[in-house]
Amino acid sequence: MQQLPLDIEIKADATFSNFIAGGEEANRQLVDLLKSVAAGNSEFIYLYGNAGTGRTHLLQGFIHQYSECFPQRLVAYLPLDNPQLVPAMVDGLLSFDAVCLDGLEHCLGNKEWETAFFNLYNHFKEQNKILIIAGDKAPQQLEVVLQDLKSRLSAMLIHAIQPLPDDAKRLLLQQKAEERGLELSEDVINYLFSRQQRDLPYLLGMLEKLDQASLQAQRRLTIPFVKQVLGL
């Protein structure tokens, strides 16, 4: 795997094996598709979902598995919300074998960016390479200046990531707590879910805050301690 010369992190724990599909058949099918592409089946895939649905996790999971299957090939993950990026960097990906673009919505409305995406798409299609793009909306709902780009995006295999139900969010929160060395009891989780927002970005941000407070105070995550840290 070749990394681009940017401060871009591929998380070691962002793998297909620990992605929680939440009992959603569509999510399991998407993971299976990405696994087959990582094994060498060339496809163009567009996946979309709200923040916290796992778009980045799935793209980075693909990077890990593709790199394991084909260590000599060039694969790139590009988070398009990175302020260091410029359209010319997309042109620099033409020689790669597989590319994942994360957060397409951050660069739309700019003709230079859109032209770079359009050219990458056409080149990869001609060369039978792999292109995976993640956005926050379906292609037809994106605000795109270059209509030829929208038509190309609409021709990709399109998959919506289904949001997790509460029981799967609980499982994910416990999993992330365990990875941090924290014990998150059922009582504490029940307390949090009865009083806090339930969207994943908020829950994971709350876990980060609790982790830092626990380390500083050298205390377990009990309900009184959680109440104190979160000001409940």
Rank of each mutant, 00 (worst) to 15 (best):
L149P: 10
G40D: 07
F70P: 04
M1H: 07
N82V: 09
L157K: 12
E208N: 07
L104H: 07
Q3H: 12
Q228T: 06
E9L: 14
G54W: 08
R73H: 06
Q29D: 15
Y48H: 13
L184W: 04
L215P: 05
H159K: 13
K150D: 02
N82H: 07
A26F: 10
E9Q: 15
A98M: 07
G23W: 03
L30M: 09
D187R: 10
I223A: 11
K129C: 01
M156S: 01
R195V: 06
Y66G: 07
L182W: 06
G49K: 09
R55C: 12
I8N: 08
R73K: 15
S151G: 00
I45W: 00
H123I: 11
L101Y: 00
L108T: 09
A168Y: 02
A21I: 09
G61D: 06
F96K: 02
P163A: 03
Q212I: 09
Y48L: 01
N18M: 13
N27W: 05
F225W: 06
L93T: 00
L142S: 11
E143M: 11
C100A: 13
V86G: 10
L210G: 01
V99N: 01
D166E: 13
Q228D: 11
W113D: 08
Y77N: 06
Q197H: 12
S151V: 01
V99L: 00
P139N: 08
L58N: 11
G23L: 01
D81A: 14
L33W: 12
S151Q: 02
Q228L: 13
F44Q: 03
L74Q: 15
I8K: 05
K129F: 00
V145R: 10
T53A: 05
